[in-house]
Design a binder for these strands. Structure first.
Lengths: 208, 208
DNA sequence: TAGATACTGAACTGATGAGTCTAGTAATTC
DNA sequence: GAATTACTAGACTCATCAGTTCAGTATCTA
C-alpha cells in the first residue's frame, strides 16, 4: 500500500490510493445504479475497503456523491485547440459534430446526464458544475469559432451564440433522446455521421 | 362517495373516484419527488384514502408508478389538426415552435422527463410509452407536414424526417437543458420566442 | 521505540418504508 | 335482511441502509 500525502501531519497519513479506489467504485456505482440505488456498503465492498475508511475520507454519502460528480465534470472539459480557423468551415464543423456526438452518446455521458436530471431537484449546485464544464463550455468554444469565421467573411451571421446553440442541439438529435431513454443500447455510427453531415450542410446553407 | 363500475359484480363495487384520487396524488408526488422519494403512506395520505385502499387498486408501488406514467403519456398526444397546409409555411412553423416549446419547457414536462431518465435503466417499457406518445408522435406529425409542403413545392428537401428532427431539436435549445438541470426556475417567454423565430428563419433559409 | 492516526471487520442503532393483518364500518346486490 | 365486497385506521413484520462504535492491527512521524 503505497502512500503519499501533501501536508505532513503526525501519525499514519491517509492513503490517497484508498481515496482513489473509493472514488472509482463510487462513481461507477452511482452512474450505473443512481444515488438511491447505491449503498455505502456496496461502495466499500467494490472499493475493497472497509466502510469506516469510506467515512474517514468522506463525511457522508451526499459528500461522496458531490465529489464524484465534480471530479467527473472536470474530465468533460474540452480543450479549444482542435477548433482550427484555417481549415475549411464545412470540414471543421463536421469534425466538431463527430467529436460532439461521440462524446454525448457515450454510455458515460448518458449515465451522467440521467444522474444529474434525477438529482437536479435536490442539488442544482451539481447541475451548475456540469453545465459549466460541459454544455456551456462547448457552446462558448463554438460561439467563438463562429464569430471569428464571420469576421473573416466565411459565414454570415449576426448572433454567433444563437447559431452555436442551434447547431449543437441539432447534432444531439433523436439518437441522444433514445439513448437517454434507454431505447437504444448501441449507436449506429454511420447513421449518426450521416445525420451530422446533413446538419452541417443545412447549417451552412442557412449561414452562407 | 359516488361510485360507478362497469362490470356488475356482487358486493360493494370499487370506487373509481378513489382510484382517480390515488392517481392524482401519486402522479403529482412522483413528478415532484421521484419514485424513490415518494412513499406509499404519503400517497395514501394525500389521496385522503387508506393505505389498504391504495393496495386494493394497485398491486404494488411499481404498478402504481407504471399506471401513472402510462396515463400521463396519453395526455401528451397532440392532435394533428393544428398543422394547416394552407397557411404560409413560416407562420405555421412559428406556431409549431411556440406550442412545442410551451409544452416542453413546462414544469410538468420537465418533471416527466427527469422521472423517465431516472427510471430508464430499470424499465425501458415506460420510456417506450413516453417516446411514442410524445417525441415520436410530434416528429411524425411534422415530417408529414414537411413532406406535403415539399410536394407542393413550398419547401426543398429530400428527407423530411431528418428536417423535422433538426427543427424540433433546435427548438429545444439551451432553455430546455437549463430547465432540465433545474438551473432555470422560470422561462423568459420573449427570449424563447425570439429564439424560435431565429430557428424558423434559419430553417427556411436552408430549405428554401 | 512511543505516540498518533489509518484501516479492518463486524456488530450495532435508528430510521424509513413496502407490504400485511385485523377488526370494525360502509355500501351494494340478491 | 343476508351475503359480499370496499374502505378505514392503525398496528405490525421485515428488510434495507446511513451512519456509529469498538477492539484489534497496520503504518506512519518524531
Amino acid at each position: 500500500m503505497s502512500t503519499a500525502n501533501a501536508t505532513a501531519t503526525r501519525g499514519r497519513p491517509k492513503s490517497t490510493a484508498k481515496k482513489a479506489q473509493i472514488f472509482e467504485a463510487a462513481v461507477n456505482l452511482f452512474l450505473e445504479k443512481g444515488f438511491d440505488g447505491t449503498s455505502m456498503d456496496e461502495i466499500a465492498e467494490r472499493a475493497e475497503v472497509s466502510k469506516q475508511t469510506v467515512y474517514s475520507h468522506f463525511r457522508s454519502k451526499e459528500d461522496l456523491f458531490s465529489y464524484c460528480i465534480a471530479e467527473k465534470c472536470v474530465s468533460y472539459e474540452l480543450s479549444p485547440e482542435f477548433l482550427d480557423l484555417e481549415r475549411p468551415v464545412d470540414q471543421m464543423l463536421r469534425v466538431v459534430g463527430r467529436k460532439f456526438t461521440d462524446l454525448l452518446h457515450s454510455d458515460d455521458a448518458i449515465h451522467m446526464k440521467r444522474l444529474l436530471c434525477a438529482s437536479a431537484e435536490q442539488s442544482p449546485v451539481l447541475s451548475e458544475l456540469y453545465y459549466e464544464a460541459g454544455p456551456k463550455h462547448m457552446i462558448d468554444l463554438l460561439t467563438d469559432y463562429l464569430r471569428r469565421q464571420a469576421e473573416r467573411g466565411r459565414l454570415k451571421l449576426d448572433d454567433p451564440r444563437t447559431a452555436a446553440c442551434q447547431l449543437l442541439h441539432m447534432f444531439l438529435g433523436e439518437t441522444h433522446l433514445l439513448r437517454l431513454l434507454n431505447l437504444r443500447q448501441t449507436v449506429d455510427q454511420e447513421a449518426v455521421n450521416d445525420y451530422v453531415d446533413a446538419c452541417v450542410d443545412m447549417f451552412l446553407r442557412a449561414y452562407r
